[in-house]
Write a protein that binds this DNA or RNA. Structure first.
Lengths: 338, 338
DNA sequence: CTGAAAGCGCTAACAT
DNA sequence: ATGTTAGCGCTTTCAG
């Protein structure tokens, strides 16, 4: 194992200088900096992150907590975060809170308290007050993505605006019988995303002088099969069939498209469908949707953390910027047929 | 920060004893073990993993390298691995090699050499000889999942057997004009999975006295749109339409189902379709498939590593066990219509 | 701008 | 079964 003193010897300087030259902290003349870099390279030297962390108190590692990996949104955010962290020389350690309370507690007790990370990114997860305050007590920055956490800086879309936009698109095409497939109550515990989305949908309708019909609202679970089921009920109703559906996720929207097909209804001729996400498969299904950009959200979360973690490196303060979203019109929406 | 000597003082023993009692290594009387545990708990003590790693040389952290996160297979393997690692008290740090050469090189130079991990799990990724040998040189166990790496212990399905089974299912129903949608040549660089799968498919046909028709083979990219395209070509052929398709992934199989529908063909009446994976959506589409179990594969990879990392804890030697697979018959396959 | 030296918090011999 | 002690490899004052 080649260590810092090997480099020091080869470069003809002290270990302290090597440390400074390699980390960029403190004054080193350009000449010695080059000499040291050369020596380090020749020897294939790499710092021992443990020793470095122990001495400096910083781990250059951030913890990412997710409720599940097998979801487009979570996976995308992680991917974006990983890329950004790598760029900053940080590692990402992943904690999957799929399991119930026991596992979750163990994650918090073990890793957060084992001081393995400098900061935490919580994706799509509501942390308890105890969890949040134990992090704060340890001085670890915490940032939420995809859902506001009480008392924590979070990156969240404007959920009201997003469904409002989707609904307005439909209204502008001439639809008035517009249904909404949202998240069920069980998803409302964290973040109230379903409520907010429903609020945006209803607000758009009211602004257009249309009274929302509770029969045109269906809760589902954000999955394709869930959307399929909900749409079947909506579209199968003999008296009250909507001419358009706003689904709260692209997966549910795609499920709705399949449900329409199975009923022999043509999209968009018989029913228009719009989703939210811009999922990988949205283009394939010709789905009109409101895109959110999870990769960028992951990156943005990291940039925000770096402002705490790496003072001085004045990054553009991306922190306060609201998350972008954008209506992408494809072939699943059209004027209602007369 | 409460340290090991605080605990030692409160428990009235030496720091060495605290270390032994808490880590389980070495002899400690039950009485003192309890006393120490109590003290540690009272003080909310948690070891500093850095100090521990520095002193012991072990990090209790394994690196997982993947080509991408947003894929059912990769995400599932990671999920399984994470769960198993947590159980063993290990952390998982994630390295996404999405980017090209630069990023990949940086991952290898920085993290593997920064000795942040005790071992590496490579999922669906072929490592270069240089990468493998640099890991070996550092004494880090490496294990592959979802693809054999030259000179490395890997968990791989028997790809030949899997497509053979799928094909035999179709043959036994009476099909003879069976097409195959496999991976393109670009996927064959790593692992030769496409070749092997094709070999199994052709072997099953020949065993049944059917000569494989090259026109009934289509390469694609494992995605749903890719499978859709390929199936369109296959099923649209006026002279030579197959009565069944073996697709090398469930996503391609689902794409094929959608292609058949769009052509007005009924599944399974006009065409039978079988996939490989047992993807989350397979059941929804009624897809007959050969299941592989990626969650279990992740766990198994971890168990195999633990045999190296935690000698003495004689786990059941799961290492040599071949990966299980299982035909799951749903409603996308049937006898060919007369 | 550079060097000397004191730890960072723990583990693992080695004693006892 | 428990205590003593010497590091693990680096960072960071503090001098110079």
């Amino acid at each position: 194992m080649v260590g810092i003193d090997d480099v020091a010897r080869l470069a003809g300087v002290s270990t302290a200088t090597v440390s400074r030259a390699l980390s960029g902290r403190g004054y080193v003349s350009d000449a010695t900096r080059v000499k040291v870099a050369q020596a380090a390279h020749d020897l294939d030297y790499v710092v021992s992150s443990n020793a470095s962390s122990l001495a400096s108190g910083r781990t250059r590692n951030v913890g990412v907590v997710v409720p599940s990996l097998n979801h487009w949104f979570f996976a995308s955010v992680i991917e974006g975060a990983e890329r950004a962290l790598l760029r900053h020389g940080y590692d990402l350690t992943l904690y999957n809170l799929t399991g119930g309370g026991e596992e979750r507690k163990s994650v918090f007790d073990h890793f957060l308290l084992r001081q393995r990370v400098d900061a935490v990114i919580a994706i799509g997860l509501e942390l308890t007050e105890a969890e949040v305050s134990s992090l704060h007590a340890m001085g670890k920055p915490l940032i939420g993505v995809g859902g506001a956490i009480a008392g924590v800086f979070s990156l969240t879309m404007d959920d009201v605006a997003v469904t409002r936009l989707a609904t307005e698109h439909l209204l502008s095409l001439g639809h008035t019988r517009i249904a909404h497939i949202g998240g069920g109550a069980e998803f409302d515990l964290d973040f109230h995303l379903p409520s907010n989305r429903r609020i945006g949908y209803e607000a758009a309708l009211r602004d257009a002088g249309v009274e929302p019909d509770p029969a045109l609202y269906r809760p589902a679970d954000f999955t394709l099969p869930g959307g399929y089921e909900a749409a079947k009920q909506l579209l199968g109703n003999p008296h009250n069939r909507p001419t358009a559906i706003v689904a709260s996720s692209d997966e549910m929207a795609i499920g709705s498209i399949l449900a329409a097909r199975d009923l022999g209804l043509h999209v968009p001729h018989d029913v228009s469908i719009v989703g939210i996400d811009d999922h990988d498969l949205a283009a394939f299904f010709g789905l009109t949707t409101v895109a959110q950009f999870p990769l960028r959200q992951g990156e943005q979360a990291v940039e925000a953390l770096m402002e705490y973690l790496e003072p001085g490196k004045d990054e553009p303060a991306s922190a306060g910027v609201p998350l972008p979203y954008e209506l992408i019109v494809r072939s699943s929406t059209a004027r209602p047929s007369p």
